[in-house]
Design a protein around this nucleic acid. Sequence first.
DNA 1: CACTGGCACTCCGACAAGAGGAGTGCCAAG
DNA 2: CTTGGCACTCCTCTTGTCGGAGTGCCAGTG
Lengths: 338, 338
Amino acid sequence: MLDDRKLDVLRAIVQDYVATQEPVGSKALAERHNLGVSPATIRNDMAVLEEEGYITQPHTSAGRVPTDAGYRLFVDRLAGIKPLSTPERRAIQSFLDGAVDLDDVVGRTVRLLAQLTHQVAVVQYPSLTRSTIRHVELLTLAPTRVMLILITSTGRIEQRAMDVAAPIGEDLLADLRARINARVVGKRFADVALLVQDLDESFTVEERPIVGTVLANLLDTLVEQQEERVVLAGTANLTRFGPDFPMTIRPVLEALEEHVVLLRLLGEATEPAMVVRIGHENMHEGLAATSVVSVGYGSGDEALAKLGVLGPTRMDYPGTMGAVRAVARYVGQILAES
Amino acid sequence: MLDDRKLDVLRAIVQDYVATQEPVGSKALAERHNLGVSPATIRNDMAVLEEEGYITQPHTSAGRVPTDAGYRLFVDRLAGIKPLSTPERRAIQSFLDGAVDLDDVVGRTVRLLAQLTHQVAVVQYPSLTRSTIRHVELLTLAPTRVMLILITSTGRIEQRAMDVAAPIGEDLLADLRARINARVVGKRFADVALLVQDLDESFTVEERPIVGTVLANLLDTLVEQQEERVVLAGTANLTRFGPDFPMTIRPVLEALEEHVVLLRLLGEATEPAMVVRIGHENMHEGLAATSVVSVGYGSGDEALAKLGVLGPTRMDYPGTMGAVRAVARYVGQILAES
DNA sequence: CACTGGCACTCCGACAAGAGGAGTGCCAAG
DNA sequence: CTTGGCACTCCTCTTGTCGGAGTGCCAGTG
């Protein structure tokens, strides 16, 4: 159906369109790429490619533009991942090496990625699902107000204030604190729910509502901890979407503010391989003209989280994929070292 | 120089221009506002206003548009702060009341502000330096390792792990915790150093090194300049800047990513009063068409940090100022309660 | 003296018509 | 299967015209 030359034509169309941002015609193609055939032949090939749904024309007698399917084919079969140049690699390394803590690593990474790709960069914080509880602390702020503090093995701290039904004594609080810690210290987040399940049975009926509130908040806090955090940078690069963008940019900005949407765009963290989602593949109406390139990263052989970039479907896929992959690798190294 | 009617004319121009986003002419003014005079008279007034630099015309035979100086005069002398409607107030309250911790309060605040004003909202985290201590907690992580947790009146938490010279018993720790809290709870950061100065005298000679280490770390944590954090929301509202915006929006997006710039835009936190910076007053080349409305907020009568919104100079100043002020008040209440 | 109506003038913005050009599809010939 | 030629389409840019909104000025009036 599609012989090699037709694929060459498609590749040339994608490359030229990405470079010029304008529909590309048969004549220009024949000139810029030495395909060894005449414009007329290319036209025939283009007709086939259009029929197959890989390219389209904005209007009669305009050049051709790749469709989502065209980009998909291009990414899957026609283009490799362009390795970064040595200076670029050096720049990445020196930029990331200065980081002092996790926040700094993530912050530098996202800015670096935005700068390298000239697109919007998104980095998900390393998952905490594998961390354990170091300590749970309870304090009274007021007679009926308790603060819960959770310390994780990674040194992270979460706090939560809550109101309880009845005044809570220091001795009850100390007892509860001791019992909770005895059960959960050193345990993984996921296991805590089971471990404290029947804890309230060892308290009096009067105390149980209080205990229940505290436990509910503890579990809540754990869930929240596991909730993935993302940071982004390079939103100014949204202006690259093109001249037609008031309509294009607004839903993208809205999506970027919804971290839930962002996380879904990055994809499942369990999947470490590079993923490219093109246009409608994002399953988000506002992102029909947007592509996402994401990849897992981690300290070892296991992906802890994902990072990636988001840009117009009309993007330089090989270069972007190269940058994303390289940054992910370096971040992995940094995390493994620290 | 400028009599009352000329000021009325300026007020009308600003109001109409903000509403319609189009240059406003003398005839339209005479129709929409009953100024009691003919268009010709208004034209004379407009000529004076233009000569004084309060308005300008994009080109001959176009209507007039306020200059930065015109908006400044409008804000300072011609317009009040528009109070929010009762339903709006109720919405604010119910939206903020559901917050569970400081992060949540700040997050809800910034989203709320963006939604109320239809502009980009910026909220600075409450500064540590002006807040007071709510509680100091000490935990043993290992026999010779102690974790210090500091809870501020704004709900912010700082932690610090340290190694001590000798194993530390639970009773000593409890004693130390109680003594420290007795002295510093409710006190301001700046006063803590004096308050704990002679605390180690009440301990035995063997205990003093340990106590000294803990106190030193406490003071260190207090002194350590906490980076000022800001969060923002509503960037999608940048599309409201107008149809001419690719050139306008890019520097704004860039400025929004530079948190240092954002903090400077919000202004000094020591200034609790509402500040309106119009166009060039921001002293930032890219924000020549941008105004910032900011105000301090805090749990008591003192400003802990600032919050505000950022939008085109052509904005509804009375409404925006009303919303900003109202939100700041409610956040202050929430912080005072928790 | 301030206000008003009238009037000529400027200049933008929208619309229409036309020229130019890029690109296509088709077809017959190599 | 490829190629050159050709007629056709339709966008885009330019130019020209027109209407209208708005202004500044001026003379008249209370």
